[in-house]
Measured scan of single mutants.
Amino acid sequence: SASLEDVKTAVLGLLVILQTKLYTLPASHATRVYEMLVSHIQLHYKHSYTLPIASSIRLQAFDFLLLLRADSLHRLGLPNKDGVVRFSPYCVCDYMEPERGSEKKTSGPLSPPTGPPGPAPAGPAVRLGSVPYSLLFRVLLQCLKQESDWKVLKLVLGRLPESLRYKVLIFTSPCSVDQLCSALCSMLSGPKTLERLRGAPEGF
């Protein structure tokens, strides 16, 4: 439990870093931090981490990651405290083949985003970082199938509809809506759902 406290501190630090690096160059920093966060949550489900502190780590990670939004130009952003989304000039939600690297070039400044813009690109060529939603999407499927803490599952179920409104997140990387529907149906009809959940409301 003591070591998990250190892990929790590290994860919180990564969330803060991602919130900053999403809007700064090099964009590969945001890509790497995002991948680290998603990989860490995957390990929770792989090794069945069920301690309360592990659940709190997942809760905080999902609470942040499910706020990711994308505009029509595929640029990622996060809402501010007033709910207004600021889109990044440097990070996009497109999935890119590994051989192309985590970044790609664009020939010049991008068109203005639909929300308040981030800082304008400084040079004639900007390297865009790929932060594909499919990585998070796979972890969300694991959550629906394996999550043991009701608070975490409730958060994910509550945030998913709003995330799905931003269709560009889903359609720019390999996210299977069929698998999502299947996971939701299995969660509702499967007898093991109630068996594994802690803290579920009576009558769920």
Rank of each mutant, 00 (worst) to 15 (best):
L73F: 12
E103G: 11
V92A: 06
F204I: 12
K167N: 05
G101H: 15
E202A: 12
G13E: 00
I41H: 00
L67D: 11
Y133D: 02
V7S: 03
T172Q: 06
L169V: 04
L78K: 05
L4V: 11
P79G: 05
L155A: 13
S173P: 03
I53E: 03
S48M: 10
R196G: 06
A54F: 03
K154N: 09
R58Y: 00
E195T: 11
P26N: 04
A30R: 02
L12V: 14
L144F: 06
A2N: 14
P113M: 14
T172S: 10
E35H: 14
S182M: 08
I17M: 09
M36S: 10
T114Q: 15
V11A: 13
A125C: 15
R196C: 05
A125H: 09
C91A: 08
F137R: 01
H40L: 00
E35F: 08
C185V: 07
L128N: 11
A2I: 08
S148R: 14
R86H: 07
Q179G: 08
D6Y: 06
L164V: 04
T31C: 15
A27V: 12
E99C: 12
L140R: 00
S102G: 14
K8V: 06
T20R: 12
G190R: 10
L140S: 05
L73K: 13
L135P: 12
L25M: 11
G158V: 07
G203K: 09
L37V: 10
L51R: 02
G118L: 14
T31I: 13
G108L: 15
I17L: 15
K192E: 12
S55A: 10
H74T: 04
P161R: 08
A183S: 11
M187V: 07
G190M: 09
G108W: 12
H29P: 02
D94N: 07
A30L: 03
L136F: 12
I41L: 12
W150F: 05
L4M: 12
Y23M: 06
S189M: 13
H47Q: 12
T31Q: 15
R196I: 06
Q179S: 09
R159Y: 05
L164G: 01
L157T: 01
I41V: 08
P52K: 06
Y45W: 01
L140I: 13
R58F: 00
L14F: 02
R198S: 10
G115H: 12
I41A: 01
L25S: 14
Q19D: 06
